[in-house]
Structures are given as structure tokens and as C-alpha cells.
Design a protein around this nucleic acid. Structure first.
Length: 749
DNA sequence: ATGGACAATGTTTTT
DNA sequence: CATTGTCCAT
């Protein structure tokens, strides 16, 4: 008992040990909210004798769930088996599979991801003969999604404008398409579960009885569906313990509504409210800056963040001439601090508003020949080759999945184009079958050597031949799955068979560096399948659908991290740079005229600032490139809110001429900076490795002269079709890719 | 059916 | 600038 609460402050102890009933913990950044949650669970099990089976703990990411599980396991030395701990979506998927009898889909439903959702909206728009230009799949999907987040079904969808009418019709068609494929989307997981509990009191009671204690992390990020869901689950015991901070609500555009915190207080007037204000992460200067920024938001519970760490270093505000120099300042600063052994490369993070901003930074790192790590830009599961293979698996699992069928039917190319697909579509409609089922029937008919009867009139002979080829493959996998050859195969065995049947490697690995990297991704998926060899296919597919790239974030390699402010939430770093603090970038252009959006931009900045433990650098520039063209920019209006007393003396910006003539940092110093393991900076998807090729006439770090761009430094070279492709950094111009024989390059000595 | 050349179009993205 | 989709010639 004393062990458990040792090291917790008063408020934390109060939260951990508070009596049953509704509890609202308002937790400032770095105030130890995860500690409170994990200790609370340990307290319930260890001290109150609550069975793990009666505890439900919900998070937003798998990573957070994993971390919580590990920490509780440590605290209790292992007696956590039985606890229901996971993301909202994973827990809902579990409930829905168990209660599938109440659903319009079967328990082996598949979960459509963002990409599939867009494809499906596109399909729906086409089915309805609507103008794709006028109603982009993206915006229509946003409309459908936010309706679902508000628990608004198609029939309840209110129409005020013609646009609403369009969305409503697409929504209806979209749901039909989902059901036809026995699928649900991310939003449906929540929506269906909430509706299920609402409409079936007996089911609701079952779960509400079971979950004696409910704990929720990041409560400010819940949407209406999640709120209602929790309310149902807590309807019997009312022991609902939520932790949140409205100041860190940055997912409004995903349906999150921080007002759920207020709604909670209203719905549970007897709730105990506990404020966690002591910060264990940052120095006081950093906290003061953060509070100065966030205090300007109206209608919030004021929090006085304080630390016992002392004021710490001043915040550095730097005005760069343009974004290139901004990046150069970041890299130089990192290099200097590392060289002087004041910090190690992994201590640094650079945060920005939009992913596009990472490019300049990457160039600066490449130019300096320093490794870095970038989060998010291209996610593993978003990669083409991975999506292809998952689509194959899904199709084998569920031939009715038309989205997956369309994806793989001509990948690798099988001479099945638009014409053939159209024919397949008409024919399947005529027969009242899904295209996948039609293919299987086609296969059967061919097996029975019933030469194509008139029933396939929509299919031409040529088209049929190609389709039959594919249907043989599909039928083969179906049979394989059904256990024709003894036992039912594992996902890995099926994957391997598919890889071989379609000769995928030959298709994807064309011998270029990119092709090899793609094949490596395939091997990575294989490895993942091998790890999950105990799971059946359905469960493997679910796991893949519900895993995000955030969850794969590795922090092990000792190199600086580049990420968006959104991706930074929940993390902390000794030294933080926030770049692009210009109006139009940090308060983003699209938020300027919308007060709610503006508040969210402010919170985003707040989240960024509060990631920093020891040092904070804020950067903006006089000029920046937008879509390739330079443009003058104003400093972010948020900067005005930070008292100047917190800033270190502002260093004068160097002029453009000074910058373009400035020399790169001596190369010996870079050598001393390189981490021992020599991890190279990678941009996912498009790797730019510094390959040393002895045969090349322009090996990396050669200085060259270009007739147009002047002097540059070769960063990378690779052979292609007997020629050399070079990546060269030109000062004041940027990174250029050239063909050695065409660019009239001179080697400088 | 496919690949190459052109125009159109650009937030953030826990699941 | 860089990615994505559409049109057109093979």
C-alpha cells in the first residue's frame, strides 16, 4: 500500500485512492496522468480486491494501451490477466464480434481503413452518377464520418442544403456497399456498439454489470459516439474514472469534442474533480510560456502549472531569413550541442505544423550528412505493396470484399482493364452476386467443363479468359483456406502461397533501390505474420486494421526526430524545436476566420511547447516557400503572447547574401558527431541512403560545379541503366536530382 | 491495356 | 514543388 502510493503527490494519491463513483481528473501536461491511471488500476486490484475481469481501461492508441499494461503488470507483479484493456476501436470490435447476431454483418466482418473508405465513397458517388469534381470523396466522407461520430444514422441525417442531400444519398449508398462487403469502417465500430447498447437493454446490462470499474485516458479526445458508449457501459456501477485536459484537445476535425469534459460534469454532478497541476517534465520557463499561450483561450478551467525543477534555460526565439536558413539553424544548433557533448542526438525533436515542412529540414540534415528519424510521413500499412498484399488476404478471407478485389485483380497486371471490370460488374449485378462470388462461380462452371453458357452474356470471350485465370487463383486460395490440404493454414502460409502464385516479388522488386525497399517491406509483413502465427486470418486482419503507425514508432536509435505537432502529443523530449511559427503556418491559413479552429491551433502550439523538458527553440522566418514560390510571412500571432522576459536575446537574422555565402560546417566535425551505430536518416518510402560507390565518378561528398545552379555537394549516387543518378545539394537552390551524363558537371577540388 | 505526357491541386490524421 | 489524376498515343 505504502509502496503503491510512494512517490505520488497529494493530488495524485487522492485520485488513485478516491472512493468509487464518477471521477474527473483534469491533468495538465507532464502531470503524471498515466501514473495515476496505472496506479489506480493497481490500487483497485491490489487493495480493493477488484477482479481484473471487472475492469475496463480504454485508450486511443495501441501504444498507450501497451504501455499501460506493462506498467500495471510491473506494479502488481503480474496479476493483471483478465483486465479489458485496449483502444476504443479494438474493444468495440471485440464486443461486436461477440454480439454479431444483432448486427447487419456477420461476426467475421472486416474493418475498412481510411483508404478503403475513400474508395468506397468514390464508388458510391459514381453509382449515384454524381459529379466527382464537385463532391470530392474526401469532403463527402468527412461529412459522413462526422455524422457517424455524432451517432447520426442515414435516416436521421438532416438536410438543409442541396449539398447535405448529396451527402445523405452517398451515405446511404456507402452503407449499402459496406454491408455488401460484410464490412464496417472505423466509425461504425463505435456507432454500432453505441447503438447496440442503446437498443438492446439486455446486452447493455450484461456489459454494464461486468465492467465494475471503467477508466478512460485522453478523455478530451472522445467524440459523441464514444461518450454515449461509455455512459452505457457505466450505467450500472457508475464507477467511471476519466482523465483529460481540454487544453490538449487537438483532434476536433476528427470528431473529438473537449466539451465532453463539461458534459461529464453535468451528467455526473456528484463527480469528484481532481486537478493535477504539478509538472514533472518541463522547466518553469517552458511552463510559463505554455501558460501564456493557452491563457488566451476563453472558457477554460485555469490551471497553474508549476514545477520544482527551477526556471531553467531561457527560450530561444530565432528569426530566420527564410525557411532554408531556419532548417540550417536547427541542424547547426544540434551539431554544435552534440559536438560540445552537451546533448546527444536523440535528445532533439523538431516539430512542425504540416508534413510538407519536413522537406527543408530533411535537406538540411542530408546536406550536413547527419542522420535523422522522421515520424509519420508514410505509414507502413499505407504503402502500396503492403496494401496490395493485405487486399489479397482480405479477398481470400472474404470474396465479397469488392474494394480489395478491385485493388488486386489487375495487380500485377493481368490484362484486366476498365472494359473487363465493367463487364464483370454488369454481369454480377445481373446475377445478383458480388463480383467475387461471380468469379468463384465462374471457376466452378469451368471446372465442371460447362463451356461458358449464355448466362455470362455480358462477358466477351477475351475478358472471360483473363477473369477465369484470376478466378482459378482465388478459388485456389479459398480451398487452401478451407483446409483442403489438411489443416487450415496460418495467415503466413496463405501469404506465402499468394506471393508465390502471383509472383509478387518479380512484380515489385525491379532491381532499383526503391524496388528492393518495397520487397523489404513485404518481408517485414511476412515477419509480422510469422509473429502472429497463432492467430487466425480474421484476427490477423483485425490486428492490422487497428494498428497505426504511431504504434510502430521506435525511439531506440539515437538520432533527432522530426514529427508533426499532432504526432508529438503524449511524448516528451529534452530539447524541442518548433519551426515555421509564422501566421498562416501555425495558426494555419484555413483556421484564421474560424474562432473554434483558431483555439485549436493555439492548443496545438501549447501541446508542442509542453513536450520540451529542458530547452525550447521557437523559430519563424521572414520569408518562406509555399508550393515552391517564396512568400513574405508574418511571425505567428501566438508569439506575441509569450512575455519577452522568457526569451534569450534574439539573435539577428543573417541576410540572404550572408547565408548563401556561408560555409558548411567543417567535415571533421560531422565525423565526430556521427553516432556509433551509424543509422542513416531515412524518409520512409523513399530512402535516400548515402551509398559509397567506389566505381562512381561522383561519389558522395564530391564538390561539383553546375552551369545553372553553381557549386553543390553530391549527397547520393546510384547507377541506373548504365548511367548515374546523383542527388546534389546546391546552396541557395536546394536538393536536385540529375543524370550525370546530361548535367554538365565539373568536379571541384 | 498500358505507359507517358499534361493539368489540377494542395492541413493536421490516435483508429 | 511534388503528388495525383486524366487524356492520348501506342
Amino acid at each position: 500500500m505504502d509502496d503503491l502510493i510512494a512517490g505520488l503527490n497529494l493530488q495524485q494519491q487522492q485520485a488513485v485512492m478516491c472512493a468509487p463513483g464518477p471521477v474527473l481528473v483534469l491533468a495538465g501536461p507532464g502531470s503524471g496522468k498515466t501514473r495515476v491511471l496505472t496506479h489506480r488500476i493497481a490500487y483497485l486490484i491490489g487493495q480493493m480486491g477488484v477482479s481484473p475481469y471487472n475492469i475496463l481501461a480504454v485508450t486511443f492508441t495501441n501504444k498507450a494501451a501497451r504501455e499501460m499494461e506493462n506498467r500495471v503488470t510491473d506494479l502488481l507483479s503480474g496479476q493483471v490477466r483478465g483486465i479489458t484493456l485496449g483502444t476504443f476501436h479494438a474493444i468495440c470490435a471485440r464486443i461486436l464480434r461477440r454480439e454479431a447476431e444483432y448486427l447487419p454483418v456477420t461476426s467475421s466482418f472486416i474493418i475498412f481503413d481510411e483508404d478503403d473508405q475513400l474508395q468506397m465513397v468514390k464508388q458510391a458517388i459514381r453509382d449515384l452518377n454524381l459529379d466527382e469534381k464537385r463532391y470530392t470523396p474526401r469532403s463527402v466522407h468527412a461529412g459522413i464520418s462526422s455524422a457517424k461520430n455524432e451517432l447520426i444514422g442515414v435516416d436521421e441525417f438532416l438536410v438543409n442544403t442541396y449539398r447535405d442531400e448529396v451527402i445523405k444519398r452517398v451515405y446511404r449508398r456507402y452503407q449499402e456497399l459496406l454491408l455488401a462487403g460484410n464490412g464496417v469502417d472505423f466509425d461504425d465500430l463505435l456507432l454500432h456498439t453505441a447503438n447496440l447498447l442503446e437498443e438492446h437493454p439486455d446486452v447493455c446490462e450484461k456489459y454494464a454489470h461486468c465492467f465494475e470499474y471503467i477508466l478512460v485516458d485522453e478523455f478530451q479526445d472522445t467524440n459523441m459516439a464514444q461518450y454515449k458508449l461509455l455512459k452505457h457501459l457505466a450505467s450500472f456501477h457508475r464507477n467511471i474514472f476519466v482523465v483529460g485536459d481540454m487544453d490538449q484537445s487537438i483532434y476536433r476535425w476528427r470528431g473529438a469534442d473537449y466539451r465532453n469534459l463539461m458534459r461529464f460534469e453535468r451528467d455526473y454532478p456528484d463527480a469528484q474533480v481532481i486537478l493535477l497541476e504539478q509538472n514533472y517534465r518541463s522547466t518553469q520557463n517552458i511552463l510559463d510560456a505554455a501558460m501564456a499561450v493557452i491563457d488566451r483561450n476563453p472558457n477554460r478551467t485555469p490551471k497553474q502549472l508549476y514545477t520544482e525543477r527551477g526556471s531553467g534555460a531561457s527560450i530561444v526565439l530565432y528569426e530566420a531569413f527564410h525557411d532554408h536558413e531556419e532548417a540550417a539553424f536547427v541542424v547547426n544548433t544540434i551539431a554544435n550541442l552534440v559536438a560540445r557533448k552537451q546533448a546527444s542526438p536523440g535528445d532533439f525533436t523538431i516539430m512542425y505544423r504540416t508534413n510538407a515542412q519536413s522537406r527543408v529540414l530533411e535537406e538540411a540534415f542530408l546536406y550536413a550528412n547527419l542522420p535523422y528519424h522522421i515520424v509519420g510521413a508514410q505509414r507502413f500499412y499505407g504503402r502500396r505493396e503492403i496494401k496490395d498484399l493485405i487486399a489479397y488476404l482480405r479477398l481470400a478471407h472474404n470474396p465479397k470484399d469488392e474494394i480489395s478485389l478491385l485493388r488486386v485483380i489487375n495487380t500485377p497486371p493481368r490484362k484486366i482493364g476498365m472494359k473487363t471490370l465493367e463487364a464483370l460488374h454488369t454481369q454480377s449485378q445481373r446475377m445478383g452476386l458480388s463480383p467475387g462470388d461471380l468469379l468463384l462461380k465462374l471457376h466452378q462452371d469451368m471446372q465442371a467443363s460447362r463451356a461458358e453458357p449464355e448466362s455470362y452474356e455480358a462477358l466477351s470471350g477475351r475478358a472471360t479468359a483473363q477473369l477465369v485465370n484470376f478466378s482459378d487463383l482465388l478459388a485456389g486460395w479459398r480451398g487452401f483456406l478451407a483446409g483442403e490440404v489438411g489443416q487450415s493454414p496460418s495467415p503466413l502460409q496463405l501469404l506465402d502461397r499468394i506471393l508465390e502464385d502471383v509472383d509478387y516479388r518479380n512484380y515489385i522488386d525491379d532491381g532499383t533501390e526503391e524496388g528492393q525497399s518495397r520487397w523489404e517491406n513485404v518481408l517485414e509483413l511476412r515477419r509480422l505474420a510469422a509473429e502472429n502465427r497463432e492467430r487466425d486470418l480474421a484476427s490477423f486482419l483485425e490486428q492490422i486494421a487497428l494498428v497505426s503507425d504511431q504504434d510502430t514508432l521506435e525511439t531506440s536509435s539515437n538520432v533527432p526526430t522530426l514529427l508533426t505537432l499532432h504526432a508529438a502529443k503524449g511524448l516528451e523530449f529534452p530539447i524541442v524545436f518548433i519551426v515555421g511559427l509564422n501566421d498562416g503556418v501555425l495558426p494555419h491559413n484555413r483556421s484564421l476566420d474560424e474562432p473554434e479552429e483558431m483555439m485549436e491551433e493555439r492548443r496545438l502550439f501549447y501541446v508542442g511547447i509542453t513536450r520540451a523538458k529542458d530547452r525550447l527553440y521557437l523559430l519563424y522566418s521572414q520569408q518562406r516557400n509555399t508550393y515552391g514560390y517564396p512568400d513574405y510571412a508574418e511571425p505567428s500571432r501566438f508569439l506575441e503572447d509569450i512575455p519577452s522576459s522568457l526569451f534569450a536575446e534574439v539573435q539577428p537574422a543573417r541576410s540572404a547574401t550572408e547565408w548563401s555565402s556561408s560555409k558548411p560546417i567543417a567535415e571533421e566535425r560531422w565525423e565526430s558527431l556521427k553516432p556509433a551505430d551509424g543509422v542513416s536518416g531515412t524518409k520512409a518510402g523513399q530512402e535516400k541512403k548515402h551509398k559509397r560507390e567506389a566505381s562512381s565518378s561522383y561519389p558522395p561528398s564530391t564538390r561539383v560545379q553546375h552551369p545553372m545552379w553553381g557549386e553543390g555537394l553530391v549527397l547520393n549516387c546510384q547507377s541506373q541503366d548504365g548511367d548515374e543518378v546523383l542527388d546534389i545539394f546546391f546552396e541557395g537552390v536546394g536538393l536536385k536530382r540529375v543524370i550525370a551524363s546530361l548535367a554538365r558537371l565539373q568536379i571541384k577540388t
